[in-house]
Design a protein around this nucleic acid. Sequence first.
RNA 1: GGUCCUAUCGUCUAGAGGCCUAGGACGUGGCCCUCUCAAGGCUAAAACACGGGUUCGAAUCCCGUUAGGACCGCCA
Length: 467
Amino acid sequence: MTVRTRFAPSPTGYLHIGGARTALFNWLFARRHKGKFVLRIEDTDVARSTKESIQAILDGMTWLGLNWDEGPFFQSQMFDTYRSHAYGLLEKGLAYRCYCTPAELEERREAALKEGRPPKYDGRCRNRTDAPEAPYAIRFKVPPGVTIVRDVIKGNISFDNASIEDLVLLRSDGTPTYNFCVVVDDATMDITHVIRGDDHINNTPKQILIYKALGHKLPVFAHLPMILGQDKTRLSKRHGATSVMAYRDMGILPHALVNYLARLGWSHGDQEIFSRAELIEKFDLESVGKSSGVFNPEKLLWLNQHYIKETDPTELGGLLLPFLEEHGIKAAGDQRLPGIVTTLKERVKTLKEMAEGALFYFREKIVYDPKAAEKFLVPPSDELFTILIERLSGLDEFTEAEIERVFNAVIEEKGLKLGKLAQPVRVALTGGTVSPGIFEMMAAMGRDMALSRLKSAVQYMKSTVAG
RNA sequence: GGUCCUAUCGUCUAGAGGCCUAGGACGUGGCCCUCUCAAGGCUAAAACACGGGUUCGAAUCCCGUUAGGACCGCCA
């Protein structure tokens, strides 16, 4: 039997971190077992579902590289199927018509709550024999007994059926409800492994009962622990960015997020870094933890930095383009890009940071940080720069090694420590005191820019001394 | 209120009764390297929620307590 998993989001918002991890684990499990990964959109709540959300979810999954083999299927297009299954159960006596109105139910619920009773449907329409000319919902007739959920992550969990109410399958307007659609779909789509958040555990016995009523074989259930925010409550907007796309916009690499999410709730010994292939090879439900975990952005950043260092400079240059664009810089054809990226990739945590660090390579004119200029763009830097300009102009090859030789020669002749020369040059070339190493940086920016900036600095010093 | 889940450093986790003086990673402190900032190397502090059992022996098994969390709709 081939493994079939599914991700079934409801399109009422963006793809968030929790959903992404659920999708990832389903995808990983399907890939691991050479099975199929199905995408199903649970849009039975027509009022809350939006086209934008559907697109956002698809975009998020695509960005993460979680490709699906079948779908997306839409529950809103399968209402007839649910309806016929509901009436099938009705005919078999496994469900019944309920004529209670929502208003009545609400009233009774409040009364029950007030008296401290569980707000459960009392089953008053269960044995009704009359059939009034009135709208009705179809309710499932929960049988007596005990239902055991066999969960590969949590173990066996047993529920007394008495605690489960006769849930509505079909609303009085004819639309199906969540718990019913899920079962009909998972059954008809031959889903073998239902991997989802553990907030669904309490729904599972209901669903198992429906599976049985429908005469379908049960899938394997695996309930993943929740992802929490720093304060240990369910991750939400107030914990900062929770949408997957927000991380893309921050300059997080998709695989960094994938690696991070995989390790949140799952582990493989002490290993932290996993390639996509390794994840597929090593992922297993048995090593998924039982307890919920706190989302830690710092660790994500660390992983991102790791993957930035690992990524090929040319590829990284391409990924950086949109972030430079945000600063009004169009660097698409710039041959220096891979070199520039190389000077930056060891010192940033995100692509956004990298773009910010790269600005000085592209600006027409740089602006000196006042404090830096005051401290470093002063004599004898003007003389030293003049010497540098002359020697650098004479270089056959403007490479990191050649530039370093020039610098070493100059400091030796003048009896200086490298820092005494490097810092002023850094200010002259970048405007500030923090940058990549000067030799690699000069090579990356190119001779023309390096020399013109040194000359500007000399001019600047002349003018300040004169003034 | 009812049902259910969970509990190892601040955080993610390893740990399947003796390999545990509890390991790794992020973060934090220190040192080294060094042209700035990083990166890198070394290093330090830091945890088995509590109480009872079971056992020769418990982080690991059982029970209870406590604390978190989820769910209880004609939402999904």
